[in-house]
Nucleic acid binder design. Structure first.
Lengths: 187, 187
DNA sequence: GTAAACATGTAACAAGTTACATGATTGC
DNA sequence: GCAATCATGTAACTTGTTACATGTTTAC
């Protein structure tokens, strides 16, 4: 208990560093865009976590001077760190501690004004649909560039698998929102 | 900012108290079973939250002596509290801060041993399928007891809407798990 | 006798968010 | 001149988890 790289965030970072050495800022960027879709973290969590990982011997860093810009700290995963992620990744995933504000609002929808509630769910549905469209665009790109999913290597498949989850999630969510809105509107 | 009943948990509790006055223990029970499916909270969060809500004038309590058992504190929602939930419920729901360990593991699946990863996703899929079956059983009960969803009153519909979300979520999740496992097994 | 349910709390800790803090460079 | 990007941190606060703490009654 309390070991470095014990937290999910720690493993997420180790996973990124298993592919390439990165500065804290680079980690931040990756945590924003692809990883952030399923595990969000801001730089104020990332920098301390990198320090913790280093204290635990999971990563090491070297300062890289840059012309003009401040020095970069480039983090590299250690053998221990690589072993730790490799073990962690196939361990049973804990089921997310289900917390969904919109479902709670649906459950309490009888307290609100029907029309207002319907509009809220319509709008929420539009947001999820928008995200779905972005994911689907990415999927089309992958299939175009990488070919058949069956032929993907392990790395590309891993990418694609996460995307498929995003697509399924957003599609289901958007549909549910539309259904709730429709019912609330009394059709 | 920092007003009582500001947190989602506070509103969840107010929502429960809008239907009936309850003791902290009763709130705990409801937070475990129906509400816990989409907003989990343990008693160590609930008791202090009730105190905060009371300090903010959202609820009041009276001690109810019981034969043998220790006194109950029965909480009742105030006019202010009711107004606050009613307003909150149709306000835009924040999108959950997407954190899903299993999707992260899928994204990092290239780091693990194929067979082990596949088994992990199989097992996870079984868990979600199990939950799905429970929800579907509940749905059958509702339809049997309450008739057509179109005829539900606002309260019953609210219940049903949350359940529909659970069903959609678990079904999609289970399907995705099976798909990931299958692909990892190399079929 | 013993475990589960009833009943209510606090303490210590971990995780996550928002704001504070600084400073250079690049593109408009 | 001004915003965005690069680059790294800390502080204050909120949320959530796990463990500690206590005591009765009821059903097996």
């Amino acid at each position: 208990m309390g070991r470095a790289g014990d937290s999910v965030l720690g493993f997420a970072i180790l996973g990124l560093l298993a592919e390439a050495s990165l500065s804290g800022y680079d980690v931040k960027l990756r945590m924003a865009e692809p990883v952030g879709f399923f595990w969000r973290a801001s730089h104020s969590q990332i920098y301390p976590e990198l320090a913790k990982l280093e204290a635990g011997g999971m990563v090491v860093h070297k300062a890289v001077p840059q012309s003009g810009k401040p020095d970069k700290k480039v983090y590299e995963i250690t053998a221990d760190g690589l072993l730790a992620v490799r073990e962690w990744v196939s361990l049973p995933a804990r089921l997310g501690p289900t917390r969904d504000e919109a479902t709670l609002k649906a459950y309490l929808s009888w307290l609100g004004e029907r029309g207002e509630m319907a509009e809220m769910f319509r709008e929420l549905g539009r947001k999820h649909e928008g995200q779905l469209e972005k994911y689907e665009e990415t999927e089309r790109w992958m299939l175009r560039e990488w070919g058949e999913p069956e032929e993907f290597g392990a790395r590309r498949f891993a990418n694609y698998a996460a995307l498929r989850r995003g697509i399924g999630f957003e599609r289901e969510y958007a549909e549910w929102c539309r259904w709730v809105a429709e019912k609330l509107e009394g059709r």
